[in-house]
Each structure stands twice: as C-alpha cells, then as structure tokens.
Design a protein around this nucleic acid. Structure first.
Length: 285
DNA sequence: GCGATTTGACCGCA
DNA sequence: TGCGGTCAAATCGC
C-alpha cells in the first residue's frame, strides 16, 4: 500500500477556500431548491392518493428528505461562512456545534435529549480523551473517511454499536474514532454518534482511496454509504473551529456533496418503516 | 489478489 | 465478573 505522507511532510496546500460570491451563489441556489421542495410537498399533499397508485406517501417522504437535505446543506454552507471544517481537532476545548439534523428526545443510557455533548475521560493509558457525542440521522456524513473495525451488541440496547476508525489511521497515523449506535426506529432513524480522539489526517473530502471496494462500509461521505438527506457535514465533522487554518471544502466539493446526496435519495425509500431493521453502516439489512 | 467487512475471542476497566 | 472496546482470522466482493 502506498503510504501517504503526513500533512506536515507534504507541501502546504490546503484546498483554497471558495470565493465568497461563489458560496453565496450556492446558498442562493440551495435556498431556491429548498423553497421548491416545500412547494412540491404542498402540491403532492393535494393530489389524491388514488391518482398516484398509493405512492403518494413515498413521494412525500422523498420530497421531505430532499427538503431536509437542502436545508442541511444550506445550514452547512452558511455555517462555513464563519466556521470551517477541520480535520485535526475533534474536540478538545469543546466541540463545535455539530449540526444535528435530528435530536433524540431520549435514548438509553444517559444523554437523554443530548444534542451534542463533549465529555472528557481517560483513555486506556491514562491520557486525556475528549469525546463528542451527538445524535444524528446521518452518522456517515461527516466528510471523513471511516473504516469499520468492529460491531458489538450493547447491553440494554436494541441495536449493536458499530466501531469505526479513521480510514487513514494507518497511513496517516490518525487516531480518530467514531462509535455509532442506532437509537430508534424512527424514519429516518436516529443514531448516537460518539467521536473520540482527533483527526490528524487532514483528509476531509480529499484523497479518496482509489481502491476502496464498492461495497465498502467505510463511512466515506464521498460515497454516501447510506442515503442521507443531509449533510450535516459538520455534524459529524467532528469539529468546526473558528480559528485554525482554513480547510473549507471548495464549491466543487460542496457540489460533489450535493450530488452524492441526490444520488442516494432512494435509500430511505428502502427503509421499511413497517419492519424496521438496524442499519449496518452500509444500508438496511 | 487486494482491500474492506464480519464476527468471535480476548483484554482491561469499573 | 460483566461489559465495552479492540484485535485478527475468516470471509466477501470487485
């Protein structure tokens, strides 16, 4: 495997921040899209169920997802106007406000109503370990490249906990980890995501491994392993920091994000609400 | 063949 | 001692 040089050894070339007017243009377009989605939803609701052969609900659900996605994208872009993605500090000092698309009202094991928490605890060897916990409907969309390394049935939990580490943990010695646990069977389901350690890979939306298998469960947003309306890129983006080197996804990247989302809209349609199944990181089982 | 996922076993902490 | 987190061999898919 070709090893990638750590950032410190590479020429300093973070993706240039997009010009402000391009970002504004993107925001405007997303706003329009969001409004249109809302209108479409209203129009769909006016159509008699029988005229759509019983598919109105599906269509409504899709439009709802679309609307959510656009809103989330808008949120993300707007947030980036003053905050930016950061792949290097997940939390120390307090996690940035993860954009939580959906907040669980409860959830087992403490953290009821937890929107986004940062807590400190000691790691195996006594080192300080900061965790950021939040609930989201789109655990995969944080813009980082994750590799699943384990899955564990958790006591008193209906769903197993999935363990991910940064996809660049080896080649870039990135220690970032992420635990994802489905909390309920809502539509879309909510996931409690715990981020530990810091990303030191600086690989947000870039350097996609060319050989990742198609069926990969790596939580790679560029592949959008599940559908997801959203881009709470910051959600997951472990952190958004206001002061640090600029690492803002370019407009091109944002477009890629959007197209990826769009391509995967169907996924929620695959989710059978009547017989909920746990999400395995790649899709509904 | 390679890289990613699965899953049972192991380890350490509370 | 039980549980959560990680490891690593087996398996899978391209």
């Amino acid at each position: 495997m070709a090893r990638r040089l750590p950032k410190s050894e590479r020429s300093p070339s973070p993706p240039p921040p997009p010009p402000g007017d391009q970002r504004d243009a993107a925001i405007q377009e997303l706003s329009k899209g969001s409004e249109l989605a809302t209108q479409l939803m209203a129009q769909l609701e006016l159509i008699p169920e029988r005229e759509l052969n019983g598919r109105r609900d599906d269509a409504l659900a899709n439009v709802r997802s679309l609307s959510m996605s656009l809103s989330s994208s808008l949120y993300a872009l707007r947030s980036e106007r003053r905050e930016h993605y950061y792949c290097g500090s997940s939390s120390s000092g307090g996690a940035g406000p993860a954009a939580v698309t959906s907040v669980s009202g409860g959830g087992r094991g403490g953290g009821s109503g937890a929107r986004n928490k940062t807590k400190r605890r000691r790691g195996k060897h006594g080192e300080e370990l900061t965790e950021t916990v939040f609930v989201t409907t789109t655990p995969e969309n944080d813009g980082f490249h994750w590799r699943k390394y384990g899955e564990k049935k958790i006591l008193n939990s209906e769903f197993p906990r999935l363990y991910y580490r940064c996809g660049y943990s080896d080649e870039r010695k990135c220690q970032a980890k992420k635990y994802v646990q489905q909390e309920n069977n809502k539509h879309p389901p909510e996931f409690r995501v715990t981020l530990t350690k810091e990303h030191t890979c600086n690989t947000l939306f870039q350097d996609q491994p060319s050989s990742s298998s198609t069926n990969s469960q790596v939580l790679d947003f560029t592949k959008a392993s599940i559908s997801s309306p959203l881009m709470d890129s910051h959600v997951g983006a472990p952190t958004l920091k206001e002061e640090e080197e600029e690492e803002v996804p370019s407009i091109d990247e944002s477009s890629r994000i959007m197209s990826t989302i769009m391509r995967n809209y169907g996924a929620y349609g695959d989710y059978d609400e009547s017989s909920p199944q746990p999400w395995n990181g790649a899709g509904w089982q």
